[in-house]
Simulated scan of single mutants.
Amino acid sequence: MSNSNTTNFTNPSIFILVGIPGLEAAHVWISIPFSIMYVIAILGNFSILFIVKMEQSLHKPMYYFLCMLAITDLVLSTSTLPKMLSIFWLNSREIDFSACLTQMYFLHCFLVTESGIFVAMAFDRYVAICDPLRHSIILTNSMVAKIGLGMVLRGGMLVLPFILVARQWPYCRTNIIPHSYCEHMAVVKLACTEIHVSNYYSLSVVFCSLGLDQFFIAVSYTQILRAIFSLPTKDACLKTFGTCGSHLCAILAFYIPCLFSVLTYRFGKNMALHFHVLIASVYLLFPPMINPIIYGVRTKQIRDRLLRLFTHKGT
């Protein structure tokens, strides 16, 4: 295997994932918090899906979008962490070329999709607070389904050019990826061709999807805050704003690590490589882990259902 790692080739059958470069000796220890985060993400998001399915009172647009978020988080974490753990535990670093591109596609597609779902949730809160009488008319079940499908299609269409171009490029330098998963820029840097077009396109996707999404979320919450501050009493303001608290926390948990990772990868040239890879790995696991906790703690209907579930089991 060592000879093939530096041999010239144009169509590699496999890539070699390093894991966390420079921290290979600590892989087993690093796997412990990663495993805990993954288990919490799996249990938490499946619990959200189960509770919304079983509780008839939660069959509303807000909770349908929450289910979409839970499914997206499950795909995001599952598309990367099992392979990471096989690297950390078993030193199983090989990944098929097609499997690498598939992982890259699902990863970036559902990152864009999750960002879009946050926009849909912000729109739901905007209509519920600013135009409550028309909420059930605007956000029907069919409209919610169309919005969810649109977000998935948007993510898939924006990310597909990454994969098509990466598949056609020749790779004649090395097949060693200094990363714990098939991150787009880590892969295309191995190509022995001009990659500036790919760099510009990836940046445009980041700013035109995540950037515009944040803009629409900011506009929605500007209108929401105006409506809240016009309420007659302080208690009414706090109660109304409380319905947005979970969503705001989830937005911050997603965008802050994501943007930090993107900015450090693009502009933090002096930072150690293992720091880049650790941040990029953690930000894929942190939102899927924290989102069900946020909604479980802050959303009364879900919290009450969870308490009833555990109380019944206890008796």
Rank of each mutant, 00 (worst) to 15 (best):
S4R: 12
T10Q: 14
S13K: 11
L17I: 03
A25C: 08
A26F: 15
H27G: 03
W29C: 10
I30R: 06
F34E: 02
M37Y: 05
M37L: 15
V39S: 05
I40S: 04
F46W: 11
M54S: 11
L58C: 10
M62S: 11
Y63R: 02
A70I: 02
I71W: 00
T72K: 01
L74A: 04
L81S: 09
L85G: 05
S86T: 09
S86Q: 13
S92T: 10
R93P: 00
I95Y: 01
F97W: 03
S98A: 11
T102P: 06
H108R: 01
C109W: 14
C109L: 13
V112E: 00
E114A: 13
E114Q: 12
S115T: 12
G116D: 07
F118T: 10
F123M: 15
F123P: 02
A128G: 02
I129V: 09
I129P: 02
I137L: 13
I137D: 13
T140Q: 06
T140V: 10
N141R: 12
N141C: 09
S142D: 11
V144G: 04
A145I: 10
G148N: 06
G150S: 08
M151G: 03
V152Y: 10
V152C: 09
L153Y: 05
V159Y: 00
F162A: 03
V165S: 11
A166Y: 04
Q168A: 15
C172S: 12
R173K: 15
I176M: 03
I177A: 04
Y181C: 03
Y181E: 00
C182E: 09
M185K: 05
A191H: 02
V197F: 15
Y201V: 07
S204C: 13
S209F: 05
D213I: 04
F215Y: 13
S220H: 08
Y221P: 05
A227F: 06
A227P: 00
F229S: 07
P232G: 04
T233G: 02
T233M: 09
L238A: 08
K239F: 03
G242M: 07
G245M: 11
L252E: 00
I256M: 09
C258R: 06
L259G: 07
R266G: 08
R266K: 12
G268E: 00
G268W: 00
K269T: 13
N270W: 15
A272Y: 10
F275L: 15
H276D: 06
V277Q: 07
L278A: 13
Y283W: 15
L285A: 09
F286M: 11
I290M: 11
Q301S: 14
Q301F: 04
D304L: 13
L306M: 13
L309S: 15
H312M: 11
G314I: 13
